[in-house]
Design a protein around this nucleic acid. Structure first.
Length: 493
RNA sequence: GGCGCGUUCGUCUAGCGGCCCAGGACGCUGCCCUCUCAAGGCAGAGAUCACGGGUUCGAAUCCCGUACGCGCCA
């Protein structure tokens, strides 16, 4: 069996979006599963829209997702003119590989498999309109196929720029053997002589892609569904160049909730946005894997290694999948619950810093986090879940209305405050015993006591288990907040 | 417009001729646990397998059409 070599080949014209991340993930999983090689190639032939920032954003996104590549540019290595690269096929930027495209363009030209086309944009537009009028497919008519040397010279003399077109076969059909969809057949007469080199001299996507995939020895091309209609043209190019084509696998697309291709108007589509929202990379990998791939037992949660072990192209879905943010959120919660409090604190560090909680002692923070871990769904929620341990409580008016209003809560706070003033040890079990005794002594139901305590101390009705929360806050803060709440809300009664 | 791909609970999916009047997961509803919120446990609602024809003793599964959705080429 040949070595497995796959690649992800993004155009650096923006951030890495969810669809691109999914394609990368599948390539990466396939490579790792087969102990093959994963290559990152930058298709920057669109000189107008390609930017250095986009390259960096893509590299950062992949690094965050934990999808490492064996060949290609190194993240963070931009030095003002380019990136450091690793791998035997460097450079991995198409704009630095023009010599290859030129070489094979010349070969095709000299073998008569490609030709110069002098048609202007206006002429091509006219041709298209005419075809539409006659209800024919708008296909290039091949008028420059048979230009004589004299005609060619005349065109050159007239200052017309030439593009290079590939001579497609007129008859027969081209079959795309697809690992996911089976054989897909396209009639050649409906395919046109497509441009391989633009008038400006740059290669088109279909040409550069074929040349590079061959030179870089790709065994499989795993890419989005939208490339399937390009594939017969590419296969013809491989043949004309005397090359064997790689195996193809076309992944179904990812849709937004409205059934249209996932795009910016559906909200967050940049992978990095999910990082800032507080999702974990392992969540993203697991969830994205399930978008278009599954096992026969419909397993949902996969350890990192398990995903690599179990991934295969056979489990890939033909039909498009709708991205479900609700399930993503659930999944993030399951991953957070698997973490230790320490790990969660560390992972949430950027968010804690933003909330001004970065000075909190790690040990105290970890304890607070441990009380909230099972309800955390996003890293970004951690600060507001624990802030009242370290900052003044902010009283939620609704909570106050519901729980602190009336004479009973106020009395509870006063009497219990007195009772706890010198109480020791101020730890969970003794506190529970003491407070339950207080309930009995005062002839109050536990709820009549517990709820006011909770709101007085934290400002809200929902929170961690009560007595541990009190222990962690410590006696001084508890007493202080009892008093503060009484002063602040006594009149409200 | 032409070509191509797709169509199983709201969503992600299992299913590759009998085990399926369709299984799992998210979400939803109810109950249990309980000091709140969660988490967890249990139960439930939810899919005439897009539609119409075939093939077959038997079809979600095979074949052919139709509809719809999406993509590509313009």
């Amino acid at each position: 069996m040949t070595n497995i070599r796959v690649r992800f080949a993004p155009s650096p014209t923006g951030f890495l979006h969810i669809g691109g991340a999914r394609t990368t993930l599948f390539n990466w999983l396939f490579a790792r599963h087969h102990k093959g090689t994963f290559v990152l190639r930058i298709e920057d032939t669109d000189e107008v829209r390609s930017t250095h920032d986009s390259v960096d954003a893509i590299l950062d996104s992949l690094s965050w997702l934990g999808l490492d590549w064996d060949e290609g540019p190194a993240p963070g290595s931009f030095d003002g003119s380019g990136w450091k690269e690793k791998g035997p096929h460097s450079p991995y930027f198409q704009m630095k590989r023009l010599e290859f495209y030129n070489k094979y363009k010349d070969q095709l030209l000299s073998e008569g498999k490609a030709y110069r086309c002098y048609c202007t944009k206006e002429e091509l537009d006219a041709m298209r309109r005419q075809a539409q009028l006659e209800k024919r497919p708008p296909r290039y008519d091949g008028r420059c196929r048979t230009l004589t040397d004299a005609q060619r010279k005349a065109n050159e003399a007239a200052g017309r720029a030439a593009s290079i077109r590939f001579r497609m076969p007129d008859d027969g059909a081209t079959v795309v053997p697809d690992l996911i969809r089976g054989d897909v057949s396209f009639e050649n007469k409906l395919l046109q002589d497509f441009v391989i080199v633009k008038t400006g001299g740059g290669p088109t996507y279909n040409f550069a892609c074929v040349v590079d995939d061959h030179i870089m020895e790709m065994s499989h091309v795993i890419r989005g569904d939208e490339h399937l209609p390009n594939t017969p043209s590419q296969i013809q190019l491989y043949r004309a160049l005397g090359w064997e084509h790689p195996q193809f696998a076309h992944l179904s697309m990812i849709l937004g909730p409205d059934g249209a291709k996932l795009s910016k108007r559906h909200g967050a589509t940049s992978v990095l946005e999910y990082k800032t929202q507080g999702f974990l990379p392992e969540t993203m990998r697991n969830y994205l894997a399930l978008l278009g791939w599954s096992t026969t037992d419909s397993q949902q949660l996969f350890e990192a290694k398990e995903l690599v072990d179990r991934f295969d192209l056979e489990g890939c879905q033909k039909n498009p999948a709708t991205f479900d943010p609700v399930k993503l959120l659930w999944m993030n919660g399951t991953y957070i619950r698997k973490m230790t409090p320490q790990q969660l604190s560390d992972a949430a560090a950027p968010f804690l810093k933003e909330a001004g909680l970065d000075a909190v002692a790690p040990d105290a923070l970890s304890k607070a986090v441990s009380l909230e871990i099972e309800k955390t769904k996003l890293l970004s929620e951690v600060p507001k879940l624990v802030d009242f341990f370290f900052k003044d409580a902010v009283y939620d008016p609704k909570a106050v209305d519901k729980v602190l209003k009336g004479p009973v809560p106020m009395q509870v706070l006063q009497k219990l405050g007195d009772a706890l003033k010198d109480f020791s040890p101020f730890t969970e079990k003794p506190l529970e015993e003491r407070i339950r005794k207080f309930c009995a002594d005062e002839n109050l139901k536990p709820g009549q006591v517990f709820h006011p305590i909770r709101v007085a101390v934290s400002g809200r009705t929902e929170g961690p288990t009560l007595f541990l929360m009190l222990e962690l806050l410590g006696r001084d803060k508890v007493i202080e907040r009892f008093e503060l709440a009484r002063k602040q809300f006594a009149t409200a009664a």
